[in-house]
């Protein structure tokens, strides 16, 4: 952060009520798409009409990891890759909260990949917004699990030869109830998606293809942030009926955007409640148990009971 830049009090930001203005200016580079992504998020939450006091944001580590710090919500900036289990704990301990994970592709799909697929499988009622900039920005442009084949990064000086993950495909295959992909230029549609996800039950996943002007574009001759946005605009096609597993991203082809999955199924907690409530109540019928056998609630040995 440049300490010499002073934000004047009278400058008004339309999202001031949900941003920590005392932390501006942010640390993101000029031309980065994260600012637009955060604004889209703010618009989406407002659109969903959920009181800000009940919205909680959790981030991991990286450029996107800093999002939690700039939103004036209960916000938790956790460790690398672990935003999802932290959010799972928050949500299950207070089911009234709307819990949103806002983190990057490396954080959510490399170091934190296991948590993502399992949270989607369990259908924990959280929203995961993944900013995909194809690279590790904060640490200086190293290869990510999203880096397209052939792209250059600071740890792929001869070009990336590892096939990347298709994030929407992985989320859908893991069981997410809502899966969408937009780019940083689709602000209105992205905000709508965020509003939809905020109101929707279950594990919701939104990928935001976002320009990284400072490292990804520089290493891959992509020009400025604005150049990248116009490239995204040209390459994007909106197709809600596309199969999310068949629309990987590469250096040149179409960026297929849309809401690919939007279905209803019971969440983790609903399953807990529906699945075991009756059985639990039977077991807790204490009086009945006293008269019968107190076996189960007393200490059992770990061996089988003959």
């Amino acid at each position: 952060m440049n300490k010499n830049i002073q934000v004047k009090k009278e400058i008004y930001h339309p999202m001031e009520d949900i941003l920590r203005m005392d932390r501006m200016p942010h640390i993101w580079c000029p031309g980065c798409g994260l600012g637009s992504d955060v604004v889209a998020f703010a618009q989406g939450i407002k659109k969903a009409n959920i009181p800000f006091d009940k919205v909680v944001i959790v981030s991991g580590i990286g450029c996107t990891g800093r999002v939690a710090g700039y939103l004036r919500l209960d916000s938790y900036h956790t460790t690398h890759g672990r935003a999802i289990p932290f959010a799972t704990g928050l949500k299950l301990a207070n089911r009234e909260l709307t819990v949103v994970v806002f983190s990057g592709d490396g954080d959510l799909f490399a170091i934190g990949g296991n948590h993502l697929i399992h949270a989607a499988r369990r259908n924990v009622d959280i929203n995961v917004i993944c900013v995909n900039n194809f690279i590790y920005g904060m640490t200086g442009g190293q290869n990510a699990p999203t880096t397209p084949l052939g792209a250059y990064s600071s740890t792929a000086p001869y070009g990336n030869f590892e096939p990347p993950f298709n994030l929407v495909g992985l989320a859908a295959a893991s069981g997410a109830t809502y899966v969408a992909r937009w780019t940083s230029i689709h602000i209105r549609r992205l905000a709508d998606s965020i509003a939809t996800a905020a109101k929707k039950k279950g594990f919701c996943f939104i990928e935001i293809v976002t320009p990284c002007a400072t490292v990804f574009a520089r290493k891959n001759k992509g020009g400025t942030g604005l150049d990248l946005l116009s490239e995204f605009k040209n390459r994007s096609v909106i197709n809600h009926s596309a199969d999310p597993t068949k629309i990987p991203l590469d250096m040149e082809g179409e960026i297929v955007c849309g809401e690919f999955v939007n279905e209803e199924k019971p969440t983790f907690w609903e399953n807990v409640k529906e699945g075991i409530r009756e059985k639990v109540e039977k077991k807790v019928d204490w009086e009945k148990m006293q008269s019968k056998r107190k076996r189960k609630l007393y200490a059992e040995s770990s061996d089988d009971l003959s």
Binding site: R293, K294, R295, Y298, L305, S306
Partner: peptide, 13 residues
Amino acid sequence: IQESVPSKYTELN
């Protein structure tokens, strides 16, 4: 023994 085995097996035990 009565407290440690399932009730349907109490008699057998």
